[in-house]
């Protein structure tokens, strides 16, 4: 294989590797926010997911069980979050910050015994026939299961949100919980489900980091990706297809970070590491500038406490 093909492959792998965890977390958060709940605890849920996935893989030797453990752990933290903001009517911003701080601490405590441990990472699954297509085959059809799953999730959620009755109800709950409640839909239960789904997806995103990206556990390994995912949802105007585009765009920014020095750019590594964070700020500014449009797209009840009146 020629050198340029190898280079292309490395670039594609970097983009996909950086985009996939963001994609999971952002898709989950998009569903949560569509129900009207703001989950600022995303970072904490990703961390808990990452450590749970890693621990389960070390114990069982099976990275797929690890992914499941990551999803379950993220869902569990989300359930806790829901208890506060949905049942106890707590402020969603403050509670989200609490979940993140708690997640940072708890994951560090649980993971302390696993620092330096190695695992067999999630294997790549080449899709038969398609993977043998020259050039494109190895670029597109030779990845791990989570990459395929994340892309299927985009399609599935697009169908769910726009073309199913359940998706319509979800949107109704997010736009006007009191109307949905008056029509007899269990607003709180639906919000719990959306929140738990979001937590599980954040957990899977975290699992991707500890099972594929590195693969190992280190304290605070998400490095703000949960917050980037939150910004991505705004950037994507709460639309699944745009979440995909946004996540891969961020993957593109990471290339500069990882391959910049290899390509002969003589900038200190710290400045390259700033790029994803700066890109998030820039993107957020660009998308928020038009406040009218932002308000149109945002679920109308996002972040507000809802208490059924009867």
């Amino acid at each position: 294989m020629s050198e340029s093909v190898l280079m292309l492959q490395a670039v594609a792998l970097t983009i996909i590797g950086a985009a996939t965890p963001l994609l999971f977390a952002a898709l989950g958060e998009m569903v949560t926010e569509r129900s009207g709940v703001l989950n600022l605890g995303l970072e904490g849920m990703m961390l808990i997911g990452a450590v749970a996935a890693f621990a389960a893989t070390v114990v069982s030797g099976n990275p797929y069980l690890g992914v499941l453990a990551g999803a379950a752990a993220g869902a569990l933290v989300a359930l806790l979050h829901g208890l506060l903001v949905l049942s106890l009517l707590a402020n969603q911003v403050a509670t989200g910050l609490a979940m993140t701080l708690f997640g940072v601490g708890l994951s560090a405590l649980l993971g302390a015994g696993f620092v330096g441990t190695t695992i067999t990472p999630l294997p790549t699954l080449a899709i038969p026939l398609l993977a043998d297509v020259p050039l494109l085959g190895s670029l597109l059809f030779d990845h791990n299961a989570l990459v395929y799953l994340s892309l299927l999730l985009v399609v599935g959620l697009s169908l769910f949100i726009y073309h199913t009755r359940a998706g319509l109800i979800l949107r109704a709950v997010g736009e006007s919980p009191s109307s949905a409640h008056a029509l007899g839909y269990p607003v709180i239960r639906i919000r719990y489900l959306a929140l738990i789904f979001g937590g599980a997806m954040a957990g899977v995103g975290g699992a991707y980091l500890s099972l594929v990206s590195t693969p190992m556990w280190s304290e605070n390994m998400t490095a703000g990706r949960g917050w980037v995912a939150l910004a991505l949802v705004v950037f994507a105007s709460w639309k699944p297809g745009r979440v995909l585009a946004g996540a891969y765009m961020f993957g593109g920014v990471t290339i500069l970070q990882l391959h910049g020095q290899g390509m002969g750019v003589s900038i200190p590594s710290q400045f390259l590491s700033m790029l994803p964070y700066l890109a998030t700020v820039v993107v957020l500014v660009l998308i928020s500038r038009d406040s009218v449009k932002l308000r149109e797209n945002r679920p109308a009840s996002l972040g507000r406490v809802f208490r059924p009146s009867a």
């Binding site: 701080l101 708690f102 997640g103 940072v104 601490g105 708890l106 405590l109 304290e219």
Partner: peptide, 11 residues
């Protein structure tokens, strides 16, 4: 990390 857990729990 126990510190962080206590802090998070308190909030």
């Amino acid at each position: 990390a126990v510190t962080g857990v206590f802090q998070g729990m308190l909030l």
